[in-house]
Every structure is written in structure tokens, then in C-alpha cells.
Amino acid sequence: KTYTFRVRIVDEETGEEKEIEVTAKSEEEAKKAAEELKKKYPNLKVELE
């Protein structure tokens, strides 16, 4: 079973919002993916929905 999570990304500089879908095998995995995004884009606000 896989879970699909919507991750909302807000670029703090431009105020631009993007939504991406993360497919993960567990909620834990999705959280890790969101953390990776935060590391990659430090000025983005990442929200897991």
C-alpha cells in the first residue's frame, strides 16, 4: 500500500505557492521526504497535508 501526500511549498521570497505530490510507503517516509525538501530549499515553507 502506498500513501500519496500533498506537500504545499511556499517560496518565502516570491510568495509563490506550489503543490507537489509525494508518494510514500508510510507517513514516516513522507515526513522524511518533506524534511529533505526543507534541506534542499531552505527558504521554502514546506507543509505536509
Rank of each mutant, 00 (worst) to 15 (best):
K1L: 09
K1I: 11
K1Q: 09
K1Y: 08
K1E: 09
K1C: 15
T2P: 06
T2E: 12
T2L: 14
T2I: 11
T2C: 15
Y3G: 02
Y3N: 02
Y3D: 01
Y3P: 05
Y3I: 04
Y3Q: 04
Y3V: 04
T4F: 11
T4S: 07
T4L: 10
T4C: 14
F5V: 06
F5C: 04
F5L: 07
F5E: 00
F5A: 01
F5R: 00
F5N: 00
R6I: 15
R6E: 00
R6A: 04
R6S: 05
R6D: 00
R6Y: 12
V7W: 04
V7K: 00
V7M: 06
V7F: 14
R8G: 02
R8M: 06
R8C: 09
R8A: 02
R8F: 12
R8E: 00
R8S: 04
I9Y: 12
I9L: 12
I9R: 00
I9A: 02
I9T: 03
I9M: 08
V10R: 12
V10Y: 14
V10W: 13
V10M: 08
V10L: 10
V10S: 05
D11G: 01
D11A: 01
D11W: 04
D11P: 00
D11T: 02
D11C: 09
E12T: 12
E12G: 06
E12L: 13
E12N: 08
E12Y: 09
E12R: 10
E13V: 12
E13A: 12
E13N: 11
E13F: 11
E13Q: 11
T14E: 01
T14L: 03
T14N: 04
T14A: 03
T14V: 01
G15V: 00
G15E: 01
G15I: 00
E16I: 09
E16A: 07
E16K: 05
E16R: 05
E16V: 08
E16G: 03
E16C: 13
E16N: 05
E17F: 14
E17L: 10
E17R: 06
E17H: 08
E17C: 14
E17K: 06
K18M: 14
K18G: 04
K18L: 14
K18C: 15
E19N: 09
E19D: 05
E19W: 15
E19A: 07
E19T: 15
I20D: 01
I20C: 13
I20E: 03
I20P: 00
I20R: 01
E21A: 06
E21V: 14
E21M: 14
E21F: 15
E21P: 03
E21H: 09
V22D: 00
V22I: 15
V22H: 01
T23Q: 12
T23W: 14
T23M: 12
A24H: 03
A24P: 00
A24G: 08
A24D: 01
A24R: 04
K25D: 12
K25R: 13
K25H: 14
S26A: 01
S26R: 01
S26V: 01
S26N: 11
E27H: 12
E27M: 14
E27W: 15
E27D: 04
E28P: 04
E28M: 08
E28I: 08
E28W: 11
E29C: 11
E29F: 04
A30P: 00
A30H: 01
A30K: 01
A30W: 09
A30G: 04
K31M: 13
K31N: 08
K32S: 08
A33T: 09
A33D: 02
A33R: 10
A34Y: 15
A34L: 15
A34E: 07
A34G: 04
E35T: 08
E35W: 11
E35S: 08
E35Y: 10
E35L: 12
E36P: 01
E36F: 12
L37R: 01
L37D: 00
L37P: 00
L37S: 01
L37A: 02
K38D: 02
K38T: 07
K38W: 10
K38R: 14
K39D: 05
K39V: 08
K39F: 08
K39Q: 09
K39R: 11
K40L: 12
K40F: 07
K40Q: 10
K40N: 06
K40P: 02
K40S: 06
K40I: 10
K40T: 06
K40M: 13
K40E: 07
K40A: 08
Y41P: 02
Y41W: 09
Y41C: 05
Y41E: 02
Y41T: 03
P42L: 05
P42M: 05
P42I: 05
N43G: 12
N43S: 07
L44R: 06
L44I: 08
L44A: 14
L44F: 13
K45G: 04
K45E: 04
K45S: 06
K45W: 08
K45A: 05
K45D: 04
K45Q: 08
V46M: 08
V46I: 13
E47S: 12
E47M: 14
E47N: 08
E47R: 07
E47W: 14
L48S: 05
L48N: 04
L48Y: 13
L48A: 06
E49D: 10
E49N: 10
E49F: 06
E49I: 15
E49K: 10
E49S: 12
E49W: 05
E49C: 13
E49R: 08
